[in-house]
């Protein structure tokens, strides 16, 4: 079953076009990764799904048209977003950051907080600390936690590993895998960290300057010689 279906999606910042007729689909329960270098359009794709960019083309979530909807409506449709650079509320506590995440899914707040604390026990210890004073890894956890507070069916994660130590990267990979396997959460990841993406995702898409270059399973992409030279340096 397809959860998210994107067809010939273009994205515009004023006159500049950042995505050119990109198509992809994400099946229910899948982990899908979009990889690409700086400026390829990964964050633009994520922001487009959230209704934060001017778009043309088609986007459907479980068959419902979501193009042109406001971010608040998309969140209510079941999309949670951990964006690039987290965009946390720096002078609020960890707990209050999570509670803002629960703005729409108010009945689920207690259950969702318990779930987030179980996934990231450190956030329970730091509940009363302002997020401005957290480490980069902890901030990323709050960001994913806040997205989970919206009770999402689809989780968007933009470069969760940037600037983090291998140990924390492994922790986040394990948590995302656990979310997918135990809760059946569908996840779309944007990454430059190819290994991270290949390890987690069942399907990988390669974006290049706003164009979808190639898509496939990690094995298929590894077998592509030209791609290997460009992205894996082998």
């Amino acid at each position: 079953m397809t959860l998210l279906e994107i067809e010939r999606l273009s994205a515009f910042y004023g006159r500049a076009q950042s995505l050119h007729e990109v198509s992809l689909s994400v099946g229910k329960g899948e982990v899908v990764a979009v990889i690409g270098t700086n400026g390829a359009g990964k964050s633009t794709l994520m922001d487009s799904i959230m209704g934060m960019v001017t778009n043309t083309g088609a986007m459907r979530l479980e068959g419902q048209d979501i193009i042109g909807r406001s971010p608040a409506e998309i969140v209510r449709h079941g999309v949670g977003y951990a964006p690039e650079r987290a965009h946390l509320f720096p002078f609020m506590t960890v707990e209050d950051n999570l509670l803002v995440g629960g703005y729409t899914a108010r009945e689920d707040i207690d259950r969702n907080i318990a779930h987030v604390h179980e996934l990231f026990p450190v956030l329970k210890e730091r509940a009363r600390q302002e997020t401005a004073t957290l480490s980069g890894g902890e901030r990323q956890m709050v960001s994913i936690g806040r997205a989970l507070m919206t009770s999402p069916r689809l989780l968007l994660v933009d470069e969760p590993t940037i600037g983090l130590s291998p140990k924390v990267v492994a922790e986040i990979a394990a948590t995302l895998r656990r979310l997918n396997e135990e809760s059946g959460l569908t996840i779309l990841i944007a990454e430059q960290n190819i290994n991270f993406a290949m390890e987690l995702a069942g399907t990988v898409h390669v974006l290049e300057t706003g164009h979808m270059r190639i898509s496939g399973t990690p094995q298929e992409l590894m077998a592509d010689e030209e791609l290997n030279r460009a992205y894996f340096g082998t």
Binding site: M50, M52, H87, V100, G101, Y103, R146, A147, T150
Partner: peptide
């Protein structure tokens, strides 16, 4: 007041 994008992606208008 702290982060408009962060608020919007939390479902706040």
């Amino acid at each position: 007041s702290m982060d408009i994008k962060g608020a919007a992606l939390s479902g706040v208008n």
